[in-house]
Design a protein around this nucleic acid. Structure first.
Lengths: 225, 225
DNA sequence: ATAAATTTGTCAGCTAGTTTACAACTCAAG
DNA sequence: CTTGAGTTGTAAACTAGCTGACAAATTTAT
């Protein structure tokens, strides 16, 4: 049963669709599980062997801490996302941790070295993975060039649109997003100050574009964003 | 002789070191050559089949044109760099062209589909390639987070340091860089206005940190940047 | 229930960097 | 040797967004 679950976790991910069930069964590369509750901090012990993680349930944020102790959000990871050493190179110096944003978090992980071996044995998987990483790169490039060339307002709008598309529950043009981020979190993601984000969100609320609360964000008409 | 050259071009690239000479000979994936002179514009015809390019000689810049006709520098490609559809997905919508920055440009290219087939046959190459893309991604992330969190001055200093390291000729702490960029180009790369870049460069010159001319940039003491 | 901590709302002052505008310089092509 | 296009130098006016500061609201812990 336990093993079944492991395989299912992999099977569930797009990336592994090219493999047959029996192939997946042979792999058995998942080596770790982790559960967490809201607010919990999940450390990636750098002493440990490099790993690739798969977030099965919930949402977490990756926070980087610099020399002066300033915290910046590196990434928001959503259900189904693969994260960690995607570049297949271990990141030594970075001081990062993950923080659970929602109530119940399930993360499973496998060793980078196991994964590499697997890729070597499955050329088609290697190719899919390469495409996967490439796609990720394209997305990152895109969002960064947004950050740089667009103003804060446009960035917030884009962020909300993306979020709504990924996780919102849509009925007609109305979208409801479960809000697990604070305004400060959002501000950091779109690289602006908390105050500016607050201002913009209130402005949108006055305009009737959305309804903000700590629990959920309701966008009345997604096409108007 | 001509074929020899092709193979050598691949052989020369880090990425293909894992392959034996005979393996490389079997590939014969290079399908196109292009030469250009300073100022020439090299279009990537979107109607054509998607390709991966390898810049053998010279420097070029990738310029994106948006709806309003504004041009922004996407990338500066240097000798030995692989560029194009690295994500292994063809980019349909983007309107980009490359412009030759130095006198003699040699670009060779191969079809994306050929490359994919090659990766399928050589899992270890696929793995190296993924690592390669991953590394590129890491670099991009890094430079973008510089763009976002640091001020224009720091960004220019960092840009010059990187440039010096990659292409400068160093004697002791003195570095000479062949300057194929205008101040406007540099400004765009570090995402600031031309005027700010000019101001900063002049400031550095008055401080005795460097000597700027259209032909070359001389950094008197790289450790002082 | 009460205290403590976190999150949100709002405002005035400030600053880095943009924009606009123009002059001076450099260089390649007739 | 001129001409004109491209590049560089400089300055004033302007502005988006940051900082700091504080109050109010809300959540969590005791």
């Amino acid at each position: 049963m336990y093993d079944e679950l492991k395989y299912w976790y992999l099977r569930d991910h797009k990336l592994f669709w090219t493999l047959s069930m029996s192939q997946i069964k042979q792999l058995c590369i998942i080596t770790g599980f982790k559960k967490a509750k809201k607010g919990d901090i999940i450390y990636f012990s750098s002493s440990d062997l490099p790993r690739v993680f798969l977030l099965k349930k919930g949402n977490i944020k990756i926070v980087a801490v610099d020399e002066e102790g300033n915290e910046t959000i590196k990434d928001i990871i959503q259900k189904g996302d693969l994260f960690g050493e995607l570049s297949l190179e271990s990141d030594t110096d970075s001081n990062e941790y993950a923080k659970a944003l929602t109530d119940e978090i399930i993360i499973c992980s496998f060793l980078l070295s196991d994964f590499e071996e697997l890729l070597l044995k499955n050329p088609s998987l290697a190719l899919s993975y390469t495409k996967f990483v490439g796609l990720k790169m394209k997305r990152i490039k895109n969002s960064y060039s947004n950050l740089i060339s667009k103003d804060a307002k446009t960035r917030l709008y884009q962020f909300l649109k993306d979020w709504a598309e990924k996780e919102g529950k849509r009925t007609g043009n109305r979208v409801v997003i479960e809000n697990y981020l604070t305004q400060n979190d959002m501000a950091q993601v779109i690289c602006t100050s908390r105050q500016t984000a607050t201002q913009l969100l209130n402005e949108m609320e006055t305009k009737g574009l959305l309804l903000y609360s700590r629990k959920e964000i309701i966008i009345e008409d997604i096409t108007k964003l």
